[in-house]
């Protein structure tokens, strides 16, 4: 079974971003970029499926500018077999990404698409569900355990109430949550080997997809700031302040 793993290049989770003074967006010039952490978890899971003999080939896909090749090389160094970049300078929103992925699925015929539940830049949490909808495939979102047998995946899902377990027929789209696994670091020899692994470059036009954004970002502001508070010396003082000053207890 072939597994498709979409990976997104995002501002590293440790970087504190700044809003541009003219409110036109977020200033990310020079910021450290990394693979979206949830996509690392998806990549790791695909590799483990291959190590267990469940997956036969892992194809990593990224979309955006040429620099996304770095993210794909990271996936290849972790253990993906080959990579596809859909190169475009267009602003890509979840629906467009889902449509582009659908076109890749048509070419690659994977049995499973494993992807992050959310990208830590736009925090949309949409693409997996959209892709499953467009394909008419089952979806299992927020996975914390995946077992594959007899043409189906049994998936434990992290939901607000606890853990829910569902079974989805393959092919399916599964989005992963934090507790699924701990992604490996690529070893130096594997980073070297990754440079020789195949990486194809496509475009939205060759895939026949119009990636035009549907949402217009009118303004991006600094969120309201909290005032720094005070340090108190004792629990007595704290309780007194919570009572009389804050009035919350």
């Amino acid at each position: 079974m072939r597994v498709l793993v979409p990976v997104k290049r995002v501002v590293d989770y440790n970087v504190k971003i700044r809003v541009k003074a003219d409110q036109s967006g977020v200033d990310i010039t020079g910021a450290k970029m990394s693979m979206n952490p949830f996509d690392e978890i998806a990549t790791e899971e695909a590799i483990r499926l291959k190590e267990r003999g469940v997956a036969s080939e892992i194809v990593a896909v990224s979309m955006g500018e040429a620099k996304c090749q770095e993210t794909l090389r990271t996936a290849l160094a972790m253990g993906a077999d080959r990579a596809i970049l859909v190169e475009t300078s267009a602003e890509l929103q979840p629906l467009a990404v889902a449509k582009l992925l659908k076109a890749i699925v048509a070419r690659e015929q994977p049995g499973l698409v494993l992807m992050g539940k959310q990208a830590i830049d736009d925090d949309s949490n949409q693409t997996a569900q959209m892709l499953a909808g467009l394909l008419g495939w089952p979806q299992a979102t927020f996975a914390s355990r995946i077992e594959i047998a007899d043409g189906a995946a049994t998936v434990a899902r992290e939901v607000d109430e606890g853990i829910e377990t569902i079974r989805v027929r393959l092919p399916a789209v599964v989005s992963v949550d934090l507790r699924l696994n701990e992604p490996r670091y690529a070893s130096l020899p594997n980073i070297m080997k990754a440079k020789k692994k195949p990486l194809d470059v496509l475009t939205p036009e060759t895939l026949g997809v119009d990636p035009a954004p549907r949402l217009e970002y009118l303004r991006v502001e600094e969120p309201p700031k909290r005032k720094a508070g005070v340090k108190v010396g004792s629990v007595q003082e704290l309780v007194a302040k919570l009572k009389s000053e804050a009035g919350v207890i």
Partner: peptide, 11 residues
Amino acid sequence: IYAGNALATVR
């Protein structure tokens, strides 16, 4: 967006 570090207005 960005873990609450920016507030976007979208149409």
